[in-house]
């Protein structure tokens, strides 16, 4: 059975390898350059928030000019989804559409064995590929995180921890489920995308900031920034506290142009500023919590796929 799965999916496997290779070369080249620049930052003591000075500013500007375009790298986030839609979704539908399930399910091995081997190998390959990419991406991300912080920023957070691998697993599992449910490739691809976004978006936007209760710092209204925060922390929300201790993110009134901001805040009854944040040392906790969520959804999707395939006729 292993041979059959390998033979059936070797084209996809090859494609995956090509994508990995191209991406790998790109990451390696840009990564090495960034590592070089990073050395300059370190030699000139330009790491951390309090590193001010014209040389550091210059270095930062040069970095932005060179690597600014890499910050977004939105393509990376789409990779797991592509894997799910192009490899996971057709897994069952292609057999049904070409009616080869009638051939493969009437050999001497049982349908469940067929499915188990197929799932194990395809998921295994997906996890291996995303794991390999993760190792490269973590290395690639580290200079910019050390220089500019923001490890919870979408690109860094999604591509430098187990969440990356779990996302690939989720996409594959959802693809298989969609395929077993719809039995048609086009519908399955569409459903995969919808399901993936329906799980991913709420987790990212609503759930992730509250995996653990955020910490809060308050500081006086004439102060620019609280000194307690580092650039590794994730600011979840910020706003104002009034005399009664209520928090709000918006001012009740508005400021006129010629008021100083301090005066304006006082006029609006603001007693202090606050910042809610997730400290940087929670990074791995958050990674594992989110990994658990995606693995949970994946297990559900895979269980449902098995049930559907068992009943499929």
């Amino acid at each position: 059975m292993t041979w059959v799965v390998w033979r059936q999916h070797r084209a996809e496997g090859l494609m995956l390898l090509v994508v990995l290779a191209v991406l790998g070369v790109f990451l390696l080249i840009t990564g090495l350059e960034m590592a070089n620049s990073f050395q300059q930052f370190r030699q000139n003591h330009c790491l951390g928030l309090n590193s001010k000075g014209s040389l550091c500013d210059e270095l930062g500007m040069a970095w932005n000019n060179h690597y600014g375009f890499l910050r977004g790298a939105p393509l990376l986030g789409a990779l797991p989804l592509l894997l799910g839609a192009l490899v996971g979704a057709p897994l069952v539908t292609r057999e049904v559409e070409q009616r080869t399930h009638l051939l493969i399910w009437t050999q001497s091995i049982t349908r469940m064995r067929w499915l188990t081997v197929k799932l194990a190998l395809v998921l295994g390959a997906g996890l291996l590929a995303s794991g390999a990419l993760l190792a490269l991406l973590s290395w690639w991300n580290s200079p910019s995180v050390q220089i500019f912080g923001d490890p919870f920023g979408a690109r860094v957070y999604d591509t430098s921890g187990p969440v990356w691998v779990a996302t690939a697993l989720l996409a594959l599992a959802l693809g298989m489920f969609a395929g077993a449910l719809t039995r048609r490739t086009v519908a399955a691809i569409f459903l995969t995308i919808v399901l993936f976004l329906a799980i991913r978006a709420p987790v990212e936007v609503l759930w992730r900031p509250n995996f653990q209760t955020p910490l809060t710092v308050t500081y006086a209204i004439d102060q620019q920034n609280p000194s307690a925060l580092s650039n590794q922390d994730w600011i979840v929300s910020q706003g104002f506290i009034d005399a009664q201790g209520n928090r709000s993110t918006n001012l009740r009134g508005s400021c006129t142009r010629d008021e100083t901001s301090t005066r304006c805040l006082q006029a609006n009854g603001v007693q202090a500023n606050y910042i809610s944040y997730q400290p940087g040392d929670r990074f791995w906790t958050f990674q594992w919590i989110e990994t658990g969520i995606y693995v949970g959804f994946s297990v559900l999707a895979l269980g449902a796929s098995v049930w559907l395939v068992r009943r499929l006729n």
Binding site: Q8, R99, T100, L102, L103, T106, Q107, S108, T110
Partner: peptide, 17 residues
Amino acid sequence: LPRLGFVAQDTPLYKGF
């Protein structure tokens, strides 16, 4: 299953094999 042989209608095969 090992004792049964089956040829489905329109004899589906893996076309790329």
